[in-house]
Design a protein around this nucleic acid. Sequence first.
DNA 1: TAGTGGTCTAGACCACGAC
DNA 2: TCGTGGTCTAGACCACTAT
Lengths: 240, 240
Amino acid sequence: MTADTLPTLKPLYQQVKEKLLGRLIDRTWQPGMLLPSEQQLANELGVSQGTVRKALDALTAEHLLVRAQGRGTFVAEFEDAKILFRFFRLTGDDDNRRFPESEFGSLRQQKATSTARDRLGLPAGSAVWVIDRTRRLKGRPIITETITLPVARFPGLDALKPLPNNVYALYASRFALTICRVTERLKAIAASQDDAAELGCAVGTPLLHIDRVAYSLDGTAVEWRDSRCLTDGLHYLSEL
Amino acid sequence: MTADTLPTLKPLYQQVKEKLLGRLIDRTWQPGMLLPSEQQLANELGVSQGTVRKALDALTAEHLLVRAQGRGTFVAEFEDAKILFRFFRLTGDDDNRRFPESEFGSLRQQKATSTARDRLGLPAGSAVWVIDRTRRLKGRPIITETITLPVARFPGLDALKPLPNNVYALYASRFALTICRVTERLKAIAASQDDAAELGCAVGTPLLHIDRVAYSLDGTAVEWRDSRCLTDGLHYLSEL
DNA sequence: TAGTGGTCTAGACCACGAC
DNA sequence: TCGTGGTCTAGACCACTAT
């Protein structure tokens, strides 16, 4: 008695998952909100509770939802320290994980460079915001970074100066952008004169160079970040 | 009618998972082998097929098993290029992923240094194998690395000289050790005189330093590896 | 006590691979 | 054709949270 069309398409639970993901993308369900119960969703979508559960479990595994027995299922938020550290891999050599304070440097608008267009998938002539800032641990500068954002996705960003330490929470709260995936390319480079001035080290000091692209829920690149880090007393932790 | 003791312990599917994991650890089921069908396992363990399935799915998610519709469930092997690249994160800047050839350098036995004991969780006075080798891409040296292994876990390793390129496959086939997890700590360092000689670069050249510990199925540290990499034209790819 | 997610079961049917 | 894993359902019971 199924109403399927001719070919068997995707599994039902995947269709359900995509439907629920759509409600996260279009902000029908916003961060922190309580979702309807499994049974309610099952009735609404005309599938069994087990199928809804499989979709919810998949979204939970991707850190987009948080489930709590006895309370319900919630849209994940970007506030918790644990979630922050998912995308921040620098750790003290004593394995104490500390989040460095940011010192806001500058924010300007300009035409995207060819590299920026490549990283963000932008057409020629696109405008971007460029943010420079330095991050310190116990007062000592350890990271100098340049963040590039498409103006089209971040209208009026300059009105929010100075930018807060946790920019991903800002993206979520002011621009309806949830960062769900990040790729980082790491190299060892020698400090340039600018790097050396920012970090208070000698020109030529080895720095860890992190070229990061962050993607939003809809799969598009949203932020390009170029970080240069001093790694004495620190390391980048990668778990495979 | 359950035979449970007083307190409710772990969920059934976790108990099943651990029981199956035990058969992987004690090599009752060896890499490449076909497991009994879900229904057979369910009957044998006295649980439902769904519970067995949940345990098998969990082990599959950890890359310990491979499932194939219509054929069955198999113990994962360490041969496929895809699996190799799971633990090898260096990539060309053109995003072409190539596996560098190894040039065997030396193998010697010695007392573990304090660092080696820390990384491998060994008691004072333990003996270790120390392997030095250089790895090349298109003939050009790009990595110089030192591998430290507990002699107790690798008896008679010196009889296998020269060691092959893919040592993890060797660990599995000759020493019944399956590497299932790896943690890497990355830093930028300046090339020492030794590094410079091995890599054909200038002293002080920035190198990516990778301090890696590899863990076997039973959760113990099995290999410590210290790699120093030239990263011009290459990068370390981290996906979060 | 009521409602939620978490676990476990039993069985039906589908898609795929080997024979 | 048969056996496998993959999907989907329906329902029971448990554990936790809030009230």
